[in-house]
């Protein structure tokens, strides 16, 4: 009896010590808007169709509005550099209610502005806080892109499609 109690005691001490948790975050914290490219065409029976399409040699870069000059200046980092894409993930500005991007298809460029609201979401002490977004409206210059449609207003850590870009 005494021996078994002693073993239980030692095992329990080891168990308690091994249960100490570390401070590493295991949750995903990347919040990006997901945009899919669709190609619009007429089929043989002259019906309008849209198919998920690859956009060749695409360059995407954020544009920051300079309040002094009133002009947009590009953000240092380029998100996509002259690469073929059918889906792009765009980070929205955590401290502004609109985010502007320059989309360059070979030689033709479009400027897309996403108007959104921001919501702070506290995850845990280990992970900290992330910012979620809700898309209000999207505007785009129609040089290469024909139109844009919002499919899901909530921008979060789940990479679900938020907008469709038709060309």
């Amino acid at each position: 009896m005494n021996k078994s109690i002693f073993i239980v005691f030692i095992v329990s001490i080891l168990l308690i010590v091994s249960c100490a948790t570390d401070d590493t975050c295991t949750q995903t914290k990347y919040v990006t808007l997901t945009a899919d490219f669709f190609h619009v065409y007429y089929n043989d029976t002259t019906q309008l169709k849209a198919i998920y399409a690859l956009s060749d040699s695409l360059t995407v870069q954020g544009l920051r509005l300079d309040t002094l000059t009133g002009k947009y200046t590009p953000v240092d980092s380029i998100l996509y550099n002259n690469s073929p894409q059918s889906t792009i993930n765009l980070p929205l500005n955590n401290f502004s209610t609109h985010s502007t991007f320059k989309l360059k298809f070979k030689t033709i460029s479009d400027t897309m502005t996403i108007y959104h609201t921001n919501l702070n979401d506290y995850l845990s002490l280990e992970c900290g806080c992330i910012v979620l977004h809700k898309i209000d409206t999207v505007t785009i210059t129609r040089h290469f892109i024909d139109s844009v449609r919002i499919t899901n207003h909530d921008v979060n850590t789940i990479n679900a499609e938020n907008i469709r870009l038709y060309k």
Partner: peptide, 20 residues
């Protein structure tokens, strides 16, 4: 109290500390 929760934006830049 939960203090010094830093919200950062790696792409657009900037950070703000939050205290609850």
């Amino acid at each position: 109290n939960v203090t010094n929760v830093l919200i950062t934006d790696d792409y657009w830049g900037g950070s703000v500390p939050l205290n609850y």
